[in-house]
């Protein structure tokens, strides 16, 4: 079990996978520019932030190998993001309801 975990974390990404991820990132870049230019709706800002998050996820999980890391590290990252989210929430509760 432990040996499996070590081998997973030592995972060597294949060049082909990286090129596919890069291609997906380029497509998403094109989509985000089109979304901004076309101004389909007032939700295009939110949509663009969503696309940015998908791009960030691809970089995190594949280029940064998060996919192959233990749940422990994923949990730590999630905790940091939750701290950031709660600070954003607290800040806005002050800004909006002051």
């Amino acid at each position: 079990m432990v040996r499996d975990a070590v081998e997973r974390e030592d995972h060597i990404g294949s060049y082909g996978t990286y090129i596919l991820i890069w291609a997906a990132l380029m497509v998403l870049l094109a989509v985000t520019i089109i979304v901004a230019k076309v101004e389909v709706s007032k939700y295009s800002v939110l949509l663009n932030l969503f696309i940015a998050t998908v791009k960030a996820g691809l970089v995190l999980f594949f280029f940064m190998h998060l996919k192959y890391e233990r749940g422990f590290l994923k949990g730590l990252l999630l905790m940091v993001l939750l701290i950031l989210a709660s600070v954003i929430g607290l800040t806005f509760s002050d800004v909006w309801y002051r």
Partner: peptide, 23 residues
């Protein structure tokens, strides 16, 4: 070094829509 470089890339992934695509 790669982890750091990819992180810097992710920061730009968010900066780009916020400063160039806000409509």
């Amino acid at each position: 070094t790669g982890l750091y470089w990819h992180f810097v890339d992710i920061v730009w992934i968010y900066l780009f829509p916020l400063f160039y695509l806000i409509t």
